[in-house]
């Protein structure tokens, strides 16, 4: 950061001579201190996982959930400044609900990502505001089968015009990550926060683009990655948050929900076991040395 002190980092929306917006880059720094958040797009659903760092022993365990539901089929987890994250979620809920008000149908995940991207980007344009100090991972499952319009009571005539093109692919699991600049991409696997580097390299090993990983395996991998990315030396305590979304005929019936207790405990057990295995290997190597 050689340009610090040149004055171009003091105001939002002002470019430095070499074409950078320093306020946005500082916002990214704020994200880099947050607990690790991970999203995995599996073949039959999406998983969100969060390493929720415990800031005080006086906080009730399991309370203060950080992964939020935006619409029935959409969830968001964010890393960075917590109040910014909550505002982001609040805006996403407004967008989803106003979409329903207008179109009488759930917002497609891609449209929500697009709108939230535009919203975040607007906060890089004015000197009167600061950029969002969060990177958010947005997961959704858009229905593959045609849904009834909200409030629909009948199916209408069974013959005649209308209907969708045969053979086209509709809906499915989706995952997006939105950064403080407003930049967003669709991902197979996304990670942000402190442990993002480790998490990303673990995600790459899963070969998610092949579309072979099942939702349940995804849940276990997400839990493992959060445990692997956790830095024992810097942060002692954390809570794992896990949510998932499947198709309408899957385990969550198309809804964004917390992973059930039994599966979560199993995933945590396997994650801890995997970690111990790693430690043992390291110890063995040392012994050999």
């Amino acid at each position: 950061m050689t340009s610090i002190g040149t004055g171009y980092d003091l105001s939002n929306s002002v470019f430095s001579p070499d074409g950078r917006n320093f306020q946005v880059e500082y916002a990214v720094k704020a994200v880099e201190n947050g607990g690790t958040a991970v999203g995995i797009r599996c073949k039959d659903g999406v998983v969100l996982a969060l390493e929720k760092l415990i800031t005080s022993k006086l906080l009730k365990a399991g309370a203060n959930k950080r992964i939020a539901t935006v619409d029935q089929n959409i969830g968001i987890v964010s890393s960075g400044l917590l109040p910014d994250g909550r505002h982001f979620v609040s805006r996403a809920r407004d967008e989803a609900s106003s979409w329903r008000g207008l179109y009488k149908a759930p917002i497609p995940t891609s449209s929500l990502a697009d709108r939230m991207g535009s919203y975040v980007q607007a906060y890089t344009l004015y000197s009167s505001v600061r950029p969002f100090g969060v990177t958010a991972i947005l997961a959704g499952y858009d229905a593959e089968k045609e849904l009834p319009v909200d409030g629909q009571v009948g199916s209408g005539p069974s013959t005649g015009s209308g209907g969708k093109k045969e053979g086209g692919k509709h809906g499915g699991p989706f995952l997006y990550m939105i950064e403080p600049s407003g930049l967003y991409w669709g991902y197979y696997g996304a990670a942000t926060g402190k442990g993002r580097q480790i998490a990303k390299s673990e995600l790459e090993k899963l070969n998610l683009s092949e579309g072979l990983l099942s939702l349940e395996e995804g849940v276990k991998e997400a839990a493992r990655i959060i445990y692997v990315a956790h830095d024992d030396n810097k942060d002692k305590e954390f809570e794992l948050e896990l949510t998932w979304i499947s198709a309408v005929d899957g385990p969550t019936k198309g809804r964004h929900q917390e992973v059930p207790k039994e599966l979560k405990e199993e995933a945590e057990r396997l994650a801890k076991k995997a970690l111990e295995g790693e430690d043992d290997d390291e110890d063995d190597e040392k012994m050999e040395d």
Binding site: K65, T69, V70, Q72
Partner: peptide
């Protein structure tokens, strides 16, 4: 229902 499920 949507609002009811914002928080589990």
């Amino acid at each position: 229902d949507v609002r009811e499920n914002y928080q589990s």
